[in-house]
Design a protein around this nucleic acid. Structure first.
Lengths: 344, 344
DNA sequence: TTTTAGCACTCTCATATAGAGAGTGCTAAT
DNA sequence: ATTAGCACTCTCTATATGAGAGTGCTAAAA
């Protein structure tokens, strides 16, 4: 493929920038007057023509200016985006909000979603961190008045699972605690496979609980992502990209269908290192719903232990540089918080 | 206030019904042909005129049919709605979905949201059940490699709180379990106030943990609602009521701002008995955002122990009878599930 | 060879106009 | 009290028109 000349790159960048600002097709004259270019509009038009033939720009109609295509945005993001660091004022504002918040993932997750949504003026997506390799940390059995027992299972990393067991007879809390202690001893730091290979004990009740533990751990190990936090839906409602659509392929549908979102996350960030930011532009022919949208996702947390995904979904026409920086910064913050509070 | 004649009530009901079906202003002739009325259109027009003067109907413009006003819907819902039971086929479909689901509130809550959204074709709102009177059930302390400790606190009812404590020194798991046992003994079934009045112990660490317990319980007691589950946003995106608006007072904003939603829930269902269904039509001059919407909410769970709210938010023009029945039915199901799995 | 001025051409958008159709309100008759 | 009949009003659609924006192309200039 033909390399673009420097001038073509500049023009493409400026068109992307101007279109992001105005949401209008960009005319050759506009470009010159807004950015004080030293060349004539005819020259710009010639270059625009070339860029259009290369598939980076398109014309809504004959006598309109140019709009970047999906391909154009993709080239821009891969080759032309200026990765400026987030202004320190913004960084401070964001950090301050985390500092002021109550401590604990249950507060930080929605906060991260809220910060991302506000900063990007798009929809934010944050999943609770989750350990790929589930392993047993601690078990507790809590009796009720009836023969039901609340089983609380803590995984290494700090995830908590709860489940209600039905026993055939009512046991005292002492008996239950004894069983829990026994299992805690047996399963100390064990992985799912190790627990599966444990020889059955003499005690039928212990076996029953271990079965339940195995089931809970299996469930956890199948999970792609943890709980989902969204924010900023209203940011995006006014965008034509979002409500022009018929109901059926509104990009917002993606957010309501967990399997789709899990797929999106799995195909992008889960293959990435923590810290790598993925930009999906226009659905990349995989997700119909994202035709005019872009998704910026990254992974945060502690590698191999506890990690989640976070990012935003917005119109394709967005300030990529700034948004990518924001996503990256919030991910760094969250990674720090997760690692400081790791349970292992 | 003047009573409506029977014929006026019928005409109002039919207009509501027809408008719900077609989303169009209802003409006098339409009413006659669609519902085989034995009176002339002129008579209907006369009655329509009266109903308009009474504020139950309005005319979008001179030569248009009539549309029910907020007041009209309110009268319809209070006086005219036919409370038909949900068809047993629908009941079975819904019950079946709960039957097929994994057991546990964490599965039932999103399921309830999904069922409500699908059945009503509106946005569903489900909050996790929450105990108004928080009381201590069980505490567990789980050590990490560092001096941080994961505190897991189970409330009566079954809510689980987690919190990370920072100790000055590293303790063994045995020491931690000992402390937990001591506190479990001290706080057995105690309410927040009872724990607050506990005399301080000799052990500084125990005191520190009890402080943390008090803080967690205080937090829990201040909560109006538990976690929020929404579904069906896309159902409603196509409705003119929802995207006609400027961003600022879209009804969906209500769902993103927890304080507003809590206020809505607090002002309606929390004052109600469990089982009572509240219908808020057009925001009732309190919630700007709900101008053309209605909210149907009810409370579910076990009185005085563990209760949450569930319902839907949809366009004002909705099939009230059916939707109210659906909300009520799902609430009954959820109440059953909560009471069967109560931890106390 | 590259750039540019100039201009014809195309398409959109806003505005105006007209006619059809829907539905009412009113009047006078039943 | 009800109804038939009709004039009137308003919306909606289609059509026409002109202004404006922006391009593509050509031929000249650098």
């Amino acid at each position: 493929m033909n390399e673009l000349s420097d001038r073509q790159k500049i023009i493409l960048s400026l068109i992307v920038h101007e279109h992001t600002r105005t949401a209008q097709p960009v005319a050759s004259k506009t470009l010159i007057s807004e950015y004080n270019l030293k060349i004539s509009s005819a020259t710009v038009r010639n270059e625009m023509n070339t860029l259009t033939e290369l598939g980076f720009l398109r014309q809504p109609h004959t006598s309109a200016g140019r709009v970047p295509t999906e391909e154009g945005y993709r080239f821009f993001v891969s080759n032309l985006v200026q990765h400026a660091a987030l202004p320190s004022a913004t960084r401070n504002t964001i950090a301050h909000q985390f500092y002021q918040s109550r401590k604990g993932l249950e507060y930080w997750l929605p906060l991260a979603a809220s910060v991302l949504a506000n900063q990007s003026q798009a929809v934010s997506i944050v999943t609770a961190p989750h350990s790929e390799k589930v392993a047993f940390k601690h078990l507790e059995l809590i009796g009720t008045r009836a023969s039901q027992v609340l089983m609380v299972l803590v995984l290494i990393g700090g995830e908590i699972q709860q489940h209600i067991l039905s026993l055939d007879t009512i046991r005292t809390q002492e008996q239950l605690s004894q069983i829990a202690a026994q299992i805690n001893h047996l399963c100390q730091n064990a992985t799912l496979d190790q627990i599966k290979n444990l020889p059955p004990t003499q005690d039928a009740l212990v076996n029953q609980v271990i079965e339940a533990v195995i089931e809970q751990l299996s469930l956890a190990s199948k999970l792609v992502t943890g709980e989902l936090y969204l924010d900023g839906l209203t940011n995006v409602l006014a965008e034509p990209e979002f409500f022009d659509y018929r109901q059926d392929n509104s990009p917002l549908r993606l957010l309501e269908e967990r399997p789709m979102l899990d797929d999106l996350i799995a195909r992008t960030v889960l293959t990435e290192e923590i810290g790598g930011v993925q930009v999906v532009i226009g659905g990349e022919n995989i997700w119909q719903e994202l035709q005019n949208c872009s998704v910026i996702l990254t992974r945060y947390g502690v590698a191999d232990q506890l990690s989640g995904a976070l990012g935003i979904l917005g119109p394709m026409r967005m300030p990529y540089s700034q948004t990518i920086s924001t996503v990256r910064f919030v991910a760094e913050l969250m990674s720090g918080l997760v690692s400081e509070n790791l349970i292992n």
